[in-house]
Design a binder for these strands. Structure first.
Lengths: 203, 203
DNA sequence: CTGATTACTGTACCCCGGGTCAAGTTTTTG
DNA sequence: CAAAAACTTGACCCGGGGTACAGTAATCAG
């Protein structure tokens, strides 16, 4: 018999894929347990209800993504100590990472939750909000440093510029999915990169 | 008794609001008919099933949004015949329009459908795709004209620049919702405007 | 090796929501 | 005024979320 943590992880993995494809409500517990190879009772041994599954899934997702961004922009900073160049390299790395996904980006759980917050209690909504805020803060710090070294050519709100990264990624995923053209997302990230370049880079 | 078309419209109105708030699957037929003031059988007189509701809803939504964009950018063009200035005015008008929404943007059905395409047959998926393509085409035509008059300062893909408008709007809605800060969407549109200005406007 | 704990299975059951069906009733309209 | 349109009533089936509880197989601590 598999260890509890393995089963739990498998449930989360299966559920995440299904939910990103079809939505939360459309994903039945029965299909999840069938895919994992356990019974319905087995599911309820791990999660008291479907909501908790959503919550845990979202939490895990946010942690993974945050770590990914951390690694990516830390690496960019190591490659170039200049804040602007580090940002531009970071976005390039992000674009490459997205381009390497074989079937396109599987979707963003945070965005998914935004359009399906029925059962999602304040707990889940807050989780989502905190994640967005942490990403805003991360990029805002970077942009403040950039703006100090390179005065922006147009007056811009650096907070909303920070939000733009989340906006472009989440929006890009949607447009890419609607069109069934995975590379739309990559190109959107590169457009954002061009914007930042134009905004800060001296002639 | 209300006319058939009135009832149908009411069903669509109620359903749209509910679906944008909670998601498609989470919105029950029973709550819709309760809000409209008819019975379950009354609903099935108008729609053979819930899928058809989704389809008709999406179709209506796309038509409304397309007309809105038409009016908005036509008006912008009337105000200024220069293609670049017309685009910048159009985006300004869009930002103002979004800013005037009392409770923030209610959400985009196209985006919503992207994360919930279980029952959504090819019919619905295609509807979505065609809508995105029509918006891409509309803006691409405009950017081609702009690029001819104002050579862009950086080499950019004008198709993906066109997609960027949909990206920013859909992404902006998500970030605004997650943060519960409606003005995030407005600010994102204005960031896009700044990008376009920087990209094309001569010094 | 044993006994307790963990990680389940199996079965039976309740409720809700999508959806069907048939028959009747009220409005609207030509 | 009659036919067609727009419903209502009520009965029913099915699948899925969720509960309850008894039984069982693996794991692990002593």
């Amino acid at each position: 018999m598999a260890r509890a943590q393995d089963t739990r992880k498998e449930i989360l993995d299966v559920a995440e894929r299904a939910i990103l494809q079809k939505g939360f409500e459309a994903t039945s517990i029965e299909e999840i347990v069938a895919a994992v190879g356990i019974t319905k009772s087995g599911f309820f041994y791990h999660f008291p209800d479907k909501n908790t599954l959503a919550h845990d899934l979202l939490k895990r997702y946010i942690e993974t993504e945050t770590k990914l961004f951390d690694d990516l922009f830390d690496r960019a900073r190591e490659l170039n100590d200049d804040p602007l160049h580090a940002m531009l390299i970071g976005l390039k790395l992000l674009a490459e990472l997205l381009d390497d996904l074989p079937n396109g980006h599987p979707g963003c759980l945070v965005a998914s939750a935004c359009y399906q917050d029925r059962l999602f209690d304040d707990n889940v909504r807050n989780l989502n909000k905190q994640a967005m805020l942490s990403w805003r803060k991360r990029f805002h710090t970077m942009f403040l440093e950039i703006a100090e070294a390179y005065p922006p050519k147009e007056k811009v709100d650096l907070v909303s510029l920070s939000d733009m990264i989340s906006t472009i990624v989440d929006g890009g995923i949607i447009v890419a999915r609607a069109l069934n053209e995975p590379d739309v997302l990559v190109k959107q990230v590169l457009q954002l990169r061009t914007y930042i370049k134009l905004l800060f880079k001296p002639d």
